[in-house]
């Protein structure tokens, strides 16, 4: 019954959305602020990557909100999971379980590589596609890969907290410094430099470094938090169990239909 009504209403919704789409396609979407930004962003901010000018310049506060969301999610996740973490530490901690030398050593091999790539992408965020988010994710992958290869290996949470705290704080502090200089909050600092070079676009690269570190630390923290319980013996069992319940529920659905 629920499924039928869901399908009926969903097809209605799909139809209506398509009708709407057809209606506005014919007019063509205007590009008011986009065009203006394209024309004056390079001059105003000096960043070759115009998307970066938008992300860190015109919509800098969005980015602040966004890293705050990641931080919030990780705080909330650790709040939710903290009782598990306590339980795990209370129980006998299972020793490092080696899942194979090849996996472990290649993970360690990849670590510097990923770190380099990540940092490169972060640093060139104002010049080329990429930036703090993309680079941050790669950084996180660098940290998470060894964890996947050797489950149960702990992550240095206090170190991560330090990085994420200071990275986030420095983003805001850069914004506030502008305020103290009599400018607006998050207004870019310093000169533009020569466009297209590494040291250009004022304080945008600094902001992107902060974002990159923050995202990297945040994501590794999140992933580590989620992965930690599965480092436990009984949790791997639960994973298979969940798969079986999935199957049974699927079967149940099948029999129903």
């Amino acid at each position: 019954m629920r499924n039928i009504s869901a399908l009926v209403f969903a097809s209605g919704l799909a139809f209506l959305l398509l009708v709407i789409t057809w209606q506005f396609i014919l007019g063509g979407a205007p590009m008011l602020i986009g065009e203006a930004i394209l024309q004056q962003a390079a001059e105003e901010l000096g960043a070759a990557n115009l998307v970066t000018s938008v992300v860190l310049g015109y919509r800098g506060i969005d980015t602040l909100g966004e890293i705050a969301i990641l931080f919030t999610a990780s705080t909330a996740t650790s709040l939710v999971l903290s009782s598990i973490a306590e339980k795990t530490s209370a129980k006998s901690k299972p020793g490092l379980r080696d899942d194979g030398t090849i996996l472990a050593s290649s993970a360690s091999l990849f670590f510097p590589l990923l770190m380099t790539i990540g940092l490169y992408i972060i640093l060139h965020g104002h010049l080329t596609p990429g930036g703090g988010f993309q680079g941050g994710v790669i950084l996180a992958a660098a940290f998470f890969l060894p964890l996947l290869a050797v489950p149960g290996r702990g992550v240095n949470h206090s170190g991560l907290a330090l990085v994420e705290g200071f990275a986030g704080a420095s983003f805001i502090v850069i914004g506030i410094i502008a305020l103290f200089q009599g400018k607006a909050f998050l207004q870019p600092l310093f000169g533009h430099g020569e466009m297209g070079s590494l040291l250009s676009a004022g304080s945008l690269p600094l902001l992107y470094i902060a974002v990159g570190l923050k995202v990297g630390a945040e994501l590794s923290g999140l992933l580590a938090n989620l992965a930690e319980p599965s480092g436990n013996g009984d949790e791997t069992l639960s994973a298979t169990e969940s798969a079986s319940t999935e199957q049974t529920s699927m079967q149940a659905e099948k029999t129903k239909s």
Binding site: I172, G175, F180
Partner: peptide, 24 residues
């Protein structure tokens, strides 16, 4: 020296730093 942006920036800044403060 008064800017309403502080109302957004200050709590976020403090929240970011809170884990570090709490370890202290």
């Amino acid at each position: 020296m008064n800017n309403i942006a502080f109302n957004v920036a200050l709590p976020l800044l403090t929240a970011f730093l809170l884990p570090i403060i709490s370890s202290g």
